[in-house]
């Protein structure tokens, strides 16, 4: 089987002898190849179009100036995306800090600790979080979480006011709430990938630890966590990529204030949110539209970097395990399932 996989096209020589079939197969093969190439071309085409349409803003402020100027003011037609970029990073950072430990704990609990009967139901419940649409998270966050957590946020801000980036008056919508919603939204993907990677830990190693007289937790610490570390980190980064690009839910709860907040409980803005909010008013203003599309480009590049790193980590973790067999990496199946 190994040799067969290694042959490009994998066509055994057996049917080389049937000329009619060969012609039909050539067509079949060309069509599929054209399809694959067409996808590549389409993506490149769209990307080029984005760059062209973003050009009015990029040439006016420069790529560097656009990205790092801390000044986004529509009324003065000044577009520096730094406050948006920072807002995106803050909210995604909060999402990681809250969401990743919970996701990993969930993965460990489901894979290694929980009674077998609970496994299936718990998995489904956690992954159903991925089935709730972004706009519904936004609706819930805006109408329930923001008002209900206002008091809690204020008391947090007051209690921990001595810490940097904490304190001040809480309006309701904030980086924190956006981060919290994002944490919930990335939980299923991080958890699914972690579970998938952890389940590649060979039973051999887990049994080795148990047979040495390790408790469950010690077994997790000695055998499961070290082995799956890079895969879990990769899963967390996929979650980060998800959080960075998340739009509608964040738009509804982040407050949409185009400056860098002084505290985690201040209102802010993100790259994705600004595009949704200002897109309507910008329609007739080429510079403004260009700025929004440029913001989309920054977002695009940011997610590309994060995702490339994440994929590399996850696939490295899987290659180590599945050096043989040629199966599609487990993470891909998990990612497909939760729509990452």
């Amino acid at each position: 089987m190994e040799a067969h996989v290694a042959t490009p096209g994998g066509a055994p020589s057996i049917f080389e002898g049937a000329p009619g079939a060969r012609a039909a197969d050539r067509v079949f093969r060309s069509v599929l190849t054209a399809l694959a190439l067409g996808i590549l071309a389409l993506i490149v085409f769209f990307f080029v179009f984005l760059v062209v349409k973003a050009n009015p803003a990029l040439s006016r402020f420069g790529i560097f100036g656009f990205t790092f100027n801390n000044d986004w003011d529509v009324s003065r037609s000044t577009y520096g995306a730094w406050p948006l970029l920072v807002g995106t990073l803050i909210t995604s950072g909060i999402a990681l800090i809250i969401g990743v430990p919970v996701a990993i704990a969930t993965a460990l609990y489901i894979n290694e600790l929980c009674p077998r009967r609970l496994r299936g139901p718990l998995t489904v419940l956690v992954e159903l979080l991925a089935a709730v649409p972004s706009v519904v998270y936004g609706l819930w966050g805006f109408l329930v979480l923001v008002p209900k957590l206002k008091g809690a946020q204020q008391s947090l801000a007051d209690t921990f006011g001595f810490l940097p980036f904490v304190g001040g008056h809480v309006a309701g919508p904030s980086y924190f709430i956006a981060g919290l919603i994002l944490a919930i939204m990335i939980l299923p993907i991080v958890s699914a990938i972690s579970r998938e990677v952890m389940s590649t830990v060979p039973a051999d190693h887990k049994e080795a630890a148990l047979a040495l007289g390790a408790t469950r937790w010690e077994m997790i610490r000695t055998a499961v966590l070290p082995y799956s570390r890079s895969g879990v980190v990769g899963g967390a980064m996929l979650g980060l990529g998800r959080a960075i690009g998340e739009t509608i839910a964040v738009t509804l709860v982040v407050g949409n204030a185009p400056q860098i907040g002084k505290s985690l409980f201040d209102q802010g803005y993100t790259l994705a949110a600004v595009i949704v909010n200002e897109f309507g008013e910008a329609a007739t203003d080429r510079l403004h539209t260009g700025a929004l599309i440029a913001a989309g480009l920054v977002l695009f590049v940011l997610t590309l970097l994060v995702n490339a790193a994440a994929r590399a980590l996850v696939s490295r973790a899987e290659r180590r395990q599945r050096a043989t067999g040629g199966a599609v990496p487990a993470g891909a199946a998990a990612a497909a399932r939760v729509g990452a």
Binding site: H205, E207, A209, A211, A223
Partner: peptide, 19 residues
């Protein structure tokens, strides 16, 4: 845990911790 501590086991396939 105490049982396994007192009764050690070596497996069919060598299984040193890879990390």
């Amino acid at each position: 845990v105490a049982v396994r501590r007192a009764i050690g086991m070596v497996f069919q396939k060598p299984n040193p911790f890879p990390t």
